[in-house]
């Protein structure tokens, strides 16, 4: 059995419709139309101990809602989940001692006090042995290189430094399952890398099971062998990240910078025309025909510049979101 077992997890939110204008506001006082949004619908998956799973999806796809249910912050509307053998939303103490969640946009540190104070509070909250705490903290501080900032008021730290502290705070009790919701959001590249390295180290050394959502595909690419893509509350893909890439490798994106304007109809006559932005026309071309395609456009169109690129992973995933087969012509 997996460390995380999810079966038919569903979560509805109800809200009220409000039309524009004062009249509508007044009408709403007396009768409101109740609407239901299905944030997560019938999601099922299983995660083995020590796996690192990337949870990807556009905004509002249901990623955070799913993580909240798995960490016990939210009740589902229906369906079941077991994390480390516990129903998360029962929030048993034993469960809470063994998991952790980091939400990139939400701080768990004390802003007015140095991070070390928040760590000390966590040491008591998780009832950690002093020696073990000192050792674990020392290890993380060294890995992250934050020794100089431990005694600085958290509100005076940069976003990157603060996020490192957030992650340290979440890891001091050595959780078996770690949920990370956008841990690198808003960070510069160096900080993103530092955080990724730490997560990888953690997973390798301690076998921590990690579920990670991110807007940055590079996070997922570097850390996770497996991705779950979720869109409109449903899973659209669950499998190896390489699978997404391989399906995309068959396509190339050709960009032409035109030296003079060309009628849209002329461009559309070439297969795979995707759009025109300023002087740049973009085409989606099968790998096998790229050479012929390039020769043709160079001969027939006023081309100032031509580039051939891989289909970005973002785009492949966007296609999977739409339920398209990434490799289809």
């Amino acid at each position: 059995m997996g460390v995380i077992e999810v079966e038919g997890l569903t979560r509805h939110f109800s809200y009220y419709e409000k039309a524009e204008g004062l009249g509508a506001s007044l009408r709403n006082l007396f009768s409101r139309k109740k609407l239901v949004r299905e944030a997560v619908r019938g999601v099922s998956f299983s995660v083995e101990r020590g796996e690192m799973v990337g949870f990807l999806g556009p905004n509002g796809a249901g990623k955070t809602t799913t993580l909240k249910m798995l960490s016990g912050i939210m009740h589902p509307t229906s369906g079941s989940a077991l994390v480390l053998g516990h129903v998360p939303w029962m929030r048993r103490k034993e469960f809470r001692m063994r998991i952790s969640i980091v939400m990139g946009q939400r701080s768990q540190l004390w802003p007015d006090l140095p991070a070390i104070e928040s760590f000390a509070l966590n040491r008591e909250i998780y009832e950690l042995d002093r020696k073990k705490y000192d050792r674990t903290l020392g290890e993380f501080v060294e890995l992250f290189g934050v020794a100089d900032f431990l005694n600085v008021q958290v509100r005076r730290l940069s976003l990157g430094e603060r996020m490192k502290m957030e992650i340290i705070a979440a890891l001091l009790h050595e959780p078996e399952v770690l949920f990370l919701d956008e841990p690198t959001i808003g960070l510069d590249l160096l900080s993103q890398r530092a955080i990724r390295d730490l997560i990888r180290t953690l997973n390798e050394r301690r076998g921590t099971t990690v579920m990670l959502t991110s807007h940055y595909l590079s996070d997922i690419e570097e850390l996770c062998e497996r991705v779950i893509l979720i869109n409109n509350g449903s899973i659209v893909y669950d499998g190896a990240l390489v699978g997404v890439n391989a399906a995309l490798a068959e396509r190339k994106v050709v960009r032409l910078v035109l030296s003079e304007s060309v009628a849209l109809g002329t461009l559309e006559a070439y297969g795979g025309f995707r759009g025109l932005e300023g002087a740049t026309a973009t085409f989606d071309v099968a790998r096998s025909t790229v050479r012929d395609f390039s020769r043709r456009v160079l001969g027939e169109l006023p081309v100032a510049d031509l580039t051939i690129e891989e289909v970005p992973l973002e785009e492949g995933i966007a296609r999977l979101y739409r339920g398209e087969d990434a490799g289809r012509d």
Partner: peptide
Amino acid sequence: MTEVSPSRAARKYLRSLSLGLRGALEYR
């Protein structure tokens, strides 16, 4: 289930107390 001594559990609230105390000192 881990058996927890009451003093251990109490310590987290003592620590919360001292956190409040220090917060108040910051904002004297």
